[in-house]
């Protein structure tokens, strides 16, 4: 019988954190920001059907980066939590704070108790009934939860994107300004993102009960003010990790 090696708990945690961070850094980023009419969520995502941004409930949206199957499982769990709660109590009783806490608990639990941590970061956004009451919760792979006031950046290059966002953020800006600045922050100075590379959704107070709405390709192109592109010719992009 072999003796198990002793590994210091600090080392275990460090290894796991490193593992999760690596996984997340491989993926592309997501930015959510508050604008005058609600919350704008922009993700770099070339897929039309595998969404990073989704609806959870009437006023709550979900964003995930990292490993798709892992954050999608969390998304579905969030929908289930919200729908069962709204059904048992009232639609007004479903709130982002309790959902964010559940995500944090779940991620924290998996991080400490399971073999492999989840390689994801989660955003829970809740649209307030009036301007100034919107909420953004950012939950990291190990269950750390942060409450952001103006914008939240998830994923790979979060630090630099957040710096760019901080430089351009304006309190109470309009959708178009917010979108252009967010896309620029995601892209950075060296490349530009086309509507095809983006997944954009809003939680808007003007949308009625179900505030979540995806911004379609045409609308997105119009908002970004892109000139119609010559016959499917894509701009050469700097090579980047998948």
């Amino acid at each position: 019988m072999t003796m198990p090696f002793y590994v210091a708990p600090e080392q275990v945690m460090k290894d796991r954190a490193e593992y999760a961070q690596k996984g997340i850094a491989r993926g592309r980023s997501l930015v959510a920001t508050i604008y005058s009419g609600g919350i704008l969520i922009v993700a770099e995502n070339p897929s039309r059907s595998l969404h990073k941004v989704s609806e959870i409930y009437d006023r709550i949206a979900f964003g995930g980066v990292g490993k798709y199957n892992e954050f999608d499982q969390l998304r579905v769990a969030g929908v289930r939590h919200a729908d069962t709660k709204g059904y048992a109590y009232s639609r007004d009783d479903v709130d982002a704070r309790s959902l964010a806490n559940l995500y944090a608990q779940f991620l924290g639990n998996v991080f400490t108790h399971e073999m492999k941590p989840l390689e994801v970061e989660i955003l829970v956004a809740e649209l307030g009934t009036r301007e100034g009451t919107d909420q953004l919760y950012h939950i990291a792979y190990e269950g750390t939860i942060t409450d952001e006031d103006h914008f939240a950046v998830l994923g790979g290059d979060a630090q630099t994107i957040a710096e760019r966002m901080a430089a351009s953020f304006n309190d109470g800006w309009e959708l178009q300004d917010a979108l252009r600045a967010t896309v620029a922050a995601l892209a950075g100075p060296d490349r530009s993102l086309r509507p095809d590379d983006l997944e954009v959704a809003v939680l808007a107070r003007a949308n009625g009960r179900r505030a979540f709405r995806r911004v379609g390709a045409d609308e997105l192109a119009a908002l970004l003010g892109d000139a119609p592109r010559p016959a499917r010719q894509r701009k050469a992009k700097a090579p980047e990790p998948a």
Binding site: H81, Y87, Y103, F106
Partner: peptide, 26 residues
């Protein structure tokens, strides 16, 4: 109330009544 997650073989899918039964709230 924890986050409602299920193992793959046990997942109620998009069926809300089945979800409620699985959660013990028929």
């Amino acid at each position: 109330m924890g986050l409602p997650t299920f193992l793959p073989g046990d997942d109620p899918g998009p069926d809300f009544p089945a979800l409620m039964r699985r959660l013990g709230r028929p």
